[in-house]
């Protein structure tokens, strides 16, 4: 008897569509192929403990978007769920209208710096070359052209002269820039970065911001997990407020309000003060 239920569902969805106000953002089953990243109804749980609930989100193409939320809000998990690194309990993720496994080359990922062993015996150039591996594929060797691509990427983050260094001899900020260069070497269309600004020096922060702006100029879409509320209005176009579920998302000017931040961070007033301060500073500028 359950076979008939599908049609009922479809008709209800069609009815729902008709009720949708004109001009609203596309939602639900529609995944326009030009949308770089579309997340629908995604729930993720670790060991039965829920981390993300019912996330619905379409990334804005060609924009720099900050993912903001308190600790444990599931920001890193959201990126990992997009990359199929953690299993989704439910939901659907599409990259340019297709599942991730068919679009691997178009997505570059910058993991958190602590996620790897920086004592590993590889040079900075070796690490950056790994960004080309998706294009190279299984069993084929790395060619000189790939190494040139990697060197160019290192140059863009200002580390060309460190190419031959073993990675443990780089400072924390330089290591972060190596990760960024690795993502650049992939020449992707969608960039997912997990806290690239975490505990870096001023030079690295400037270098990362420059790279982000260059990516935007070239029409790439970038999502960055970000902790520093003060710099959100300065660095980013859009913001996604996340606390286990999507609280709000959209242009920074509309969404990055004290009310929305209160809904994201709950009663953690110190953070709210910081945010209010940031907003005031943003208005003054």
């Amino acid at each position: 008897m359950w076979s008939s239920l599908g049609s009922g569902r479809e008709s209800a969805r069609a009815a729902a569509k008709q009720r949708e106000p004109a001009g609203a953002l596309p939602h639900g089953s529609e995944h326009p192929p030009d949308c770089p990243l579309s997340i629908h109804d995604t729930t993720v749980a670790y060991h039965r403990k829920p981390v993300l609930w019912d996330v619905d989100y379409d990334a804005a193409a060609g924009k720099l978007t900050a993912i903001v939320g308190p600790n444990g809000a599931g920001k890193s998990t959201l990126l990992k769920a997009v990359l199929d690194l953690v299993p989704r309990a439910s939901g659907r993720v599409t990259i340019f209208g297709e599942p991730y496994r068919r679009q691997r080359e178009r997505v570059a990922y910058v993991p958190q710096r602590e996620s790897v062993d920086w004592d590993f015996p590889v040079s900075a150039l070796d690490v950056v070359t790994m960004g080309c591996y998706a294009k190279i594929g299984w069993l084929r060797p790395v060619t000189r052209a790939h190494r040139r691509t990697a060197l160019e990427a290192l140059e863009r983050v200002g580390l060309a002269e460190y190419a031959g260094r073993q990675i443990s001899q780089l400072s924390g900020g330089q290591q972060q820039r190596v990760f960024l260069a690795r993502a650049l070497a992939q020449h992707a269309d969608l960039y997912l970065m997990d806290e690239p600004f975490a505990s870096v020096d001023a030079a690295t922060e400037r270098a990362i911001v420059d790279v982000l702006r260059e990516l935007r100029r070239n029409g790439r879409t970038v999502l960055v997990v970000h902790h520093d509320l003060q710099t959100v209005p300065e660095y980013f176009d859009n913001v996604l407020l996340l606390n286990m579920r999507v609280v709000a998302h959209g242009p920074v000017g509309e969404i990055f309000t004290p009310e929305n931040l209160a809904r994201t961070y709950g009663g953690r007033l110190t953070l709210l003060d910081a945010a209010a301060h940031a907003l005031k500073r943003g208005d003054g500028a």
């Binding site: 990359l83 691997r104 690490v127 591996y133």
Partner: peptide, 20 residues
């Protein structure tokens, strides 16, 4: 498998994300 083994040993998350 030098390239693949090195990637998987250094950064398994990236290896998985790149389909290795």
């Amino acid at each position: 498998l030098f390239k693949e083994l090195r990637l998987a040993a250094f950064d398994p998350a990236l290896a998985a994300a790149l389909g290795f």
